[in-house]
Design a protein around this nucleic acid. Structure first.
Ligand SMILES: NC(=O)c1ccc[n+]([C@@H]2O[C@H](COP(=O)([O-])OP(=O)(O)OC[C@H]3O[C@@H](n4cnc5c(N)ncnc54)[C@H](O)[C@@H]3O)[C@@H](O)[C@H]2O)c1
Ligand SMILES: NC(=O)c1ccc[n+]([C@@H]2O[C@H](COP(=O)([O-])OP(=O)(O)OC[C@H]3O[C@@H](n4cnc5c(N)ncnc54)[C@H](O)[C@@H]3O)[C@@H](O)[C@H]2O)c1
Lengths: 206, 206
DNA sequence: TTTAGCTTGTGAAGAAATTCACAAGATCGT
DNA sequence: ACGATCTTGTGAATTTCTTCACAAGCTAAA
């Protein structure tokens, strides 16, 4: 399969969100132009993005909202439940454990892990907090798909190494550090400080 | 000034982080190659990124670590304190209010605002929670630079409109929605669900 | 059935970002 | 002082991403 750019996948994700809004409002078709307006892009971009995966529209009409959402969910791999573990039962880990947006999309949080014995054994919003020493055994048994890394920055790489060794192939990192992983492991970093610095740059350069 | 790409600014932010590590370890010079290795990019990319702003290196030697960090901080606008307010004193707002990473970088959180009267008047980790009705008056007085939006998705656009009307020119949005703002207002969105969907896509496409 | 009016799907063109490649400047050891 | 060895800074080449532009397909109305 042709390589799909990251930016394309992000836009597909955005389109799906609008489609769900449209579905909720009972609209049955949508044009690439309308989708583009919502997503802050162009209609040609929308059509090009979709064209990598097939032809879903009807000329003269647009796209069927339920059909296109279904196809986008398939493309994005959202047709199934993904099993997630959280590494680091701290403040941001707690906020994420709470977060309904994840569960709604089919991301099921199995457990949190922490190295602090005081946190182990407690619950984080109904999610058990386990000792990090159990990780490898638990992963072999429960086969989580995705690790969310919310440990302090200086422990992030070693934590990633740990989950990679345990066999997990995808991680979402919240520590403000560039992480290094083998090629068959996908790591995405959410770096809030970087975003704020982008705003700072924008403010001083106008 | 030539328009600087978003991706360039993000990389500068990453370089600065490594430089601070290097500084802490007492190293005095660094090459574009080393910087590239840390940041997962190429040395040519590093040099090109820096070249938009001047020539900071010494041929044959590399870059002076303290000098380059200083310059990067200047470029990114981190030479000053930025005043930040949080809109939505919920779970993610609380985690951010706590977050030391912001303060360390010169982002000072003045206050949080919420529409829920039960939250107003309390403290969120030492930060006062104020009624949203006071926003416009407070902004006129305290002149915050950046609004962090952590309200539910369906209130995000109206909240952005509110802070824009009050005169704020930059916002960091955590709600999973595409926001629309006038051209002179910079909005960055941190969309965690989108990142997770990117992982999902990567997992099914291998 | 024909025509008018939309909107898709997609090559081709254009723009933007990245990588190449090398001259030029700096250091170091002899 | 000279040659060997680095590493920067930057045009040019290349690759990647976006936008253009239009033929082709679908609908609805006459
Ligand atoms: N709080 C925020 O809003 C926020 C925002 C952006 C990024 N972050 C980043 O997220 C990370 C966590 O931040 P936080 O505010 O939640 O910090 P925190 O101190 O509240 O939580 C960190 C948790 O990780 C645990 N931990 C430490 N080392 C560990 C290890 N080796 N293995 C397992 N668990 C370990 C600690 O016991 C603690 O419970 C940091 O890297 C931070 O920079 C936080
Ligand atoms: N919790 C997470 O980890 C997480 C992660 C990613 C994104 N988000 C997003 O962040 C936002 C907040 O999530 P949360 O989990 O903190 O929810 P929350 O319900 O804990 O907090 C939302 C807060 O906003 C306040 N609020 C509601 N409408 C408001 C308005 N019009 N003006 C001012 N305040 C208002 C509420 O009173 C509440 O205190 C949501 O959009 C969510 O999708 C949350």
């Amino acid at each position: 399969m042709k390589r799909i750019a990251d930016s394309t996948v992000r836009r597909l994700s955005a389109y799906l969100r609008f489609l769900e809004d449209f579905e909720a409002r009972g609209l049955s078709t949508i044009s690439s132009d309308e989708l583009a307006r919502q997503g802050g892009t162009t209609s040609a971009q929308v059509r090009k993005d979709l064209s990598f995966f097939g032809s879903f529209g009807k000329r003269g009409l647009g796209y069927s909202v339920p059909e296109l959402s279904t196809r986008l969910r398939e493309i994005l791999g959202l047709g199934r439940e993904w099993r997630v573990i959280i590494l680091g039962a701290g403040k941001i880990g707690a906020a994420l454990a709470h977060y309904e947006g994840f569960r709604q999309r089919g991301f099921q949080i199995l457990a949190a892990y922490d190295s602090n014995p005081e946190k182990v054994g407690r619950k984080l919003e109904g999610i058990p907090v386990r000792g990090i020493a159990h990780l490898e055994r638990d992963v072999a048994k429960e086969k989580p798909d995705i690790a969310v890394i919310t440990v302090p920055a200086d422990a992030a790489q070693q934590t990633l190494d740990l989950v990679v060794r345990a066999g997990i192939k995808a991680a979402l990192n919240f520590a403000p550090t560039q992480l290094h992983a083998p090629a068959d492991v996908t790591v995405k970093t959410v770096n809030m400080a970087m975003e704020l610095e982008g705003l700072s740059f924008a403010l001083v350069n106008r």
